[in-house]
Design a binder for these strands. Sequence first.
DNA 1: CTCTGTTGTGTTACTCTATAACATCTGTCA
DNA 2: TGACAGATGTTATAGAGTAACACAACAGAG
Lengths: 133, 133
Amino acid sequence: MTSSSSLTKNQKLVLDALEKEKGPLSAYSILDRLRDDGLRAPLQVYRALDKLLDLQLVHRLESLNAFVACAHPHCHASHMIAFGICETCGQVWEFSDDVVRDRLMGWAESHDFKPSKTTIEMKGVCADCRAAG
Amino acid sequence: MTSSSSLTKNQKLVLDALEKEKGPLSAYSILDRLRDDGLRAPLQVYRALDKLLDLQLVHRLESLNAFVACAHPHCHASHMIAFGICETCGQVWEFSDDVVRDRLMGWAESHDFKPSKTTIEMKGVCADCRAAG
DNA sequence: CTCTGTTGTGTTACTCTATAACATCTGTCA
DNA sequence: TGACAGATGTTATAGAGTAACACAACAGAG
């Protein structure tokens, strides 16, 4: 039984909303999309998001206060994930880089710092938007 | 004439408040500390912060919605700066790593993505707090 | 010197993001 | 079956950030 098949109704609704969207959504945007499905209060969305974040099915983009469905939901290998975020079209690229991870972990080790969560977000303009620019 | 000597009254107040503090402060915490100096509205703080961010005298920590004084205010070399943030004591370490920067810029180039601002934040527990823990 | 444009200020009101507190419900497992 | 863990629904509130408008301070051009 996969983790996603054990999701509750609200968790499925929120995950579906995020997967339908090509870009990130704020919690309140998700709420707006789910009003017809019975969701009424922000907490219903935030609680579902908390669970989905735990399960790594969703990522939070700190620099946007927004959320995206994980692009690789089957790889639970808790990578240190980085994001490219187009400020023009809103599209998000999710990637990881072992060298970046090693260097950051190296800094942490040399400072006896125990990292729990790492945020790497590059905002900019994507190829398509530059071409269209 | 250095950039900091040309700061206005509000900008100096906000920068001083941040420099006095060892850790990051939210805009509203800054406002609280500056009420006796005549500041009354959030916008007065946000406007000063905008300018200080432009001048790179202050950094914004996206994962905390908070701000810190730049640890190296004399180096304007627009590095790609990374932060270690202790979730226990709130202390912040500011560092940069050329290899990390090169790898991220490499990803950007290979995707024809033009980055404008990059956020790198490691949250965790620092050496002192682990020892005290 | 004065006009004018740019930058900063002060204030009110507002939007967006997130959580507290409390009651209820539902399923699981002993 | 009953007790606990987790999910739900709701109201109210806290925290973060911006819009719009009027005014002040100051520099440079004429």
